[in-house]
């Protein structure tokens, strides 16, 4: 750039250098203080023994060693995998709902919004609804099971079914979320390609598989991201519906961490932080994959 002696132009060049940082600073500082630095602090605390009030004692890997011997940790880990696997069902279910609703008939807009309803409601309310739904004696679901099988099952009090019951409650809003992503995707299809495929006699399943789904790939990607993250973050429903019970059988890492660090079981901040770090590392695997894909997309722009 040629040097320009005029002060106004000089300021303008400096302005271009300063402006991005000035615009960025307020948000970035907040994000640094409340998100990025706490991650590092948590990792640091996970090497300490700390009750949240007194002095911290460095214990090295002791929290992690203890975690490896903790049965609840393995129950939580197993349940997290179950959440992850079953939660992904929200994607095909959401797609099915979107295909069902992607018509142009009278009142369809209202139907779409009402189908989306569960996502707008707080998970606390969803949890209470399903607790009521599953309640023995008067819950609609238990009545249905009784009517079908003749025997009563208290889903949330039964170690065999409790996690499935909670995941089912979580799938309700998550399916609605995926549905709305796919409905938008379906609105943006390339019609010429579809018509061309129809000319070639592609119908129904084959058309969906080879023409529609590839076009829906961006929606599927976002649905994957939000569903995987949602599954691993699951906390509210477990807390509301069972608090990890009965006998810790519906425990997940996020709730286990909270219970260890901040509840009547004691204030074991170091141990809780170690659990959080494990969950963080698991999620980082997925986050890294997502970000790598996003970087690839950025490059292609």
């Amino acid at each position: 750039m040629p040097h320009d002696p005029q002060p106004a132009r000089f300021w303008k060049r400096n302005q271009m250098k300063i402006a991005p940082y000035a615009f960025l600073a307020p948000g970035a500082v907040m994000f640094l203080i409340y998100v990025l630095i706490p991650i590092v602090q948590s990792i640091w605390i996970s090497f300490q023994d700390w009750d949240g009030l007194g002095p911290k004692t460095w214990v090295g890997l002791a929290n992690y060693v203890e975690l490896m011997d903790d049965d609840t940790f393995y129950v939580a880990l197993k349940n997290n995998l179950l959440w992850l696997g079953l939660y992904l069902l929200a994607i095909p279910m959401g797609l099915a709902a979107a295909l069902f609703l992607n018509q142009n008939v009278w009142g369809i807009r209202l139907y779409k919004s009402l189908f989306f309803f569960p996502f707008v409601i707080s998970q606390v309310v969803v949890g209470l609804m399903f607790t009521w739904f599953y309640a023995p004696d008067f819950g609609l679901f238990s009545q249905l099971i009784k009517w079908l099988t003749g025997s009563e099952v208290a889903i949330l009090a039964d170690e065999r079914y409790v996690t499935y019951g909670i995941i089912a409650a979580g799938l309700w809003p998550q399916t609605a979320y995926c549905m709305i992503l796919y409905l938008t995707g379906l609105n943006n299809l390339n019609f010429e390609q579809i018509e061309a495929a129809r000319m070639d006699n592609a119908r129904g399943w084959r058309l969906l598989r080879h023409v529609i789904l590839p076009q829906l790939a961006p929606a599927t990607f976002i649905a994957m991201v939000v569903t995987v993250i949602g599954a691993l973050r699951s906390f509210d429903l477990v807390s509301i519906m069972t608090a990890g019970g009965p006998y810790g059988s519906s425990q997940v890492l996020s709730y286990f961490m909270y219970e260890q660090a901040l509840s009547e079981y004691g204030y074991r901040m170091g141990y809780g932080a170690a659990i959080a770090v494990v969950l963080f590392l698991i999620m980082m695997v997925f986050i890294t994959l997502f970000i790598m894909r996003m970087i690839a997309q950025e490059r292609n722009r």
Binding site: Q41, A276, F280
Partner: peptide, 25 residues
């Protein structure tokens, strides 16, 4: 791009990794 992806990634992390320090702060 680094700043951008830090914002994006921060958005996906588990709340539990922030819990103890944010409560302390």
């Amino acid at each position: 791009l680094w700043v951008f992806f830090a914002f994006v990634a921060g958005n996906f992390i588990p709340f539990q990794i922030l819990m103890v320090p944010v409560r302390e702060l």
